[in-house]
């Protein structure tokens, strides 16, 4: 299958969706959004791209590239919980830091944000893996 229009669109859609997903991820603390929704958006972008350019090397390359994301996501999510313990509070305790950056100004970094980023990565990893494996037209066994 060689859908030129879809391929043209998919290049744009992938970039737009990933940028949008990052935006949704970071506004998630106080407004609608968050790691899960962001992860779904980004994963959707990647899946659309793979569907448009479907071939085996691309599919397995995407799978391989995204494989560490699940583990990284879990580590971040678990780590954000453990950070609370390390600072002498209970598990999953929210900690906040203010960081001064040049150009941007002061931003808040918090353990809920780290947790959300972890969820974001885990959702991308799992969702893309599930869809691509189901899509693959090779025998599994």
């Amino acid at each position: 299958m060689n859908a030129i229009l879809l391929q043209l669109a998919a290049r744009v859609i992938r970039v737009v969706m990933i940028i949008a997903s990052v935006f949704v991820l970071f506004r998630g603390h106080n407004q609608p959004g968050g790691g899960f929704i962001g992860g779904l958006l980004a994963g959707g972008g990647i899946v659309v791209y793979v569907i448009a350019f479907y071939n085996h090397p691309l599919l397995s390359k995407t799978l391989r590239a995204l494989a560490p994301m699940r583990v990284i996501g879990l580590i971040l999510a678990l780590g954000s919980g453990i950070l609370g313990v390390l600072f002498g509070e209970s598990f999953l305790h929210a900690l906040w830091w203010k960081i001064e950056l040049p150009l941007i100004g002061a931003i808040d970094i918090s353990t809920p944000l780290i947790f959300d980023v972890g969820v974001y990565f885990a959702v991308i990893g799992v969702m893309v893996m599930v869809i691509l494996l189901l899509m693959e037209d090779r025998k599994w066994s």
Binding site: V130, L133, L134, W140, S141
Partner: peptide
């Protein structure tokens, strides 16, 4: 919703595996 997402992903995988075997 997140849980049913996982469950449906599992079920689809099971469906494909059943169909293949």
């Amino acid at each position: 919703i997140v849980i049913s997402f996982g469950v449906v992903a599992y079920l689809l995988t099971l469906l494909r595996k059943t169909h293949e075997i």
